[in-house]
């Protein structure tokens, strides 16, 4: 197990900020920080399941039909997550709604299955799933928190500024999602660049 496999998914190869994958749920459900975390965790659960199975059965699947097979594996785990969430966290399930079945077509999950789990062993793939899942959750949390602060004046449901604060509603409406992620990406690019310059010894 390599630490690098775990950490690379968090910042260096963050699925949302760097690889620009999994954008539909990232933009749609992040109207608050808590929704972002919930969506991130649901995706992580699917990712862990699919990476495990794909790395185990990979040798049994002919290369030609691998993508459909991966999709079936992923869809099974999505169904499990969907049913479990409906049973135990029904309110959250209602809020995330359509986007839980849509984890099937989240490019992050299929992308990891195709580019990592199909080529690596069980332990490596599990580590990768945890790292990528954590990075995805983190990105969704930050995006959700930024939108919640600007659009509602609160974080995780706690009021930050008191009643004098006039939130800009647009941030929790669809356009706010695009704009907030755009500016977050500017910040990410800046940090990423600075890190690279430091490592290069300039």
């Amino acid at each position: 197990m390599k630490l690098k496999t775990f950490t690379s998914g968090i910042f260096e190869n963050n699925p949302v900020m760097k690889q620009v994958l999994g954008l539909c749920p990232a933009l749609a459900v992040t109207t608050s920080a808590i929704n972002g975390i919930a969506m991130g965790l649901a995706t992580t659960a699917v990712l862990i399941g699919s990476n495990t199975v794909v790395s185990l059965v990979n040798n049994l699947i002919p290369t030609k039909v691998r993508i459909p097979s991966y999709i079936v594996i992923i869809a099974s785990f999505v169904t499990v997550v969907d049913l479990v969430m409906n049973a135990y966290v029904h309110d959250l399930h209602k809020v995330l709604g359509l986007f839980i079945p849509l984890i099937v077509v989240n490019c992050v999950v299929l992308g990891r299955a195709e580019s990592f789990a199909s080529k690596n062993g069980l332990l490596e793939s599990l580590t990768d799933a945890f790292g990528t899942g954590f990075g995805f959750t983190l990105a969704l949390f930050v995006l959700g928190a930024v939108r919640e602060v600007l659009g509602n004046g609160s974080v995780m449901g706690f009021d930050l500024f008191g009643s004098g604060f006039k939130p800009s509603i647009v941030m929790i409406l669809p356009p706010g999602a695009f704009i907030a992620l755009g500016f977050l990406m500017v910040g990410y690019k800046y940090l990423d660049e600075r890190k690279r310059v430091k490592r290069g010894g300039v």
Binding site: I179, L181, G182, F183, V186
Partner: peptide
């Protein structure tokens, strides 16, 4: 510089979404 590529595309999409609202 830091807005080139994806970031400016997102912000543009945001303004387009605003128009559609």
């Amino acid at each position: 510089y830091y807005f080139r590529g994806m970031p400016i595309a997102f912000i543009t999409a945001g303004i387009l979404a605003l128009a559609f609202m």
